[in-house]
Nucleic acid binder design. Sequence first.
DNA 1: GCCAACGTTGGC
DNA 2: GCCAACGTTGGC
Length: 174
Amino acid sequence: MLHQFMMEKSYKYYKISRVDMAYWLLKTEPDEFSIDDLEKLASGVEPWDGIRNYQARNIMRDQIQVGDLAFIYHSSCKQVGVAGIAKVVKAAYPDPAQFNPESKYYDPKSTQDNPRWVCIGVKFEAKFSNLVSLKEIKANEQLLDMALVKQGRLSVQPVRQSEWKIINKLANKN
DNA sequence: GCCAACGTTGGC
DNA sequence: GCCAACGTTGGC
């Protein structure tokens, strides 16, 4: 099986079998950072920081690679759904926010020698003219196995190649 | 290592 | 703003 992932339920760990690239989904609250903010970035590269969940961290640390593509998903807002695509341009590195007492992502238990949290660097790739809503996704039988549907709260999650294609198709139709 | 209490996510 | 689902913490 290519570009697919298996889930070992007991470990709550998604293991990707990859050939050359893989697909992901990154959640963001558009009030804080949206696909438009990503598009407008002068520097191009956005540190995907502030992830404070071990499962999400492990996926970034162990599996996401430069060149992978990710859906940008807008959550906790009026229009919930997949808003566009980003490209991974930087592999996992320690999230600087964890060391900054001023940051809301500050973690006093994290040290420079033994950082607890990582982030990745992403770059704008595309914006969907109309987002693919969560409702549409849930209405599609072929998307019911998505982590997005099965495990609502994971902020960094894998996407199967088949799911990637279907959602792109839905985006083009909208 | 169990599990109750508590905190957070995120759809609605 | 409500609340279900689930993650985290900490006492024992």
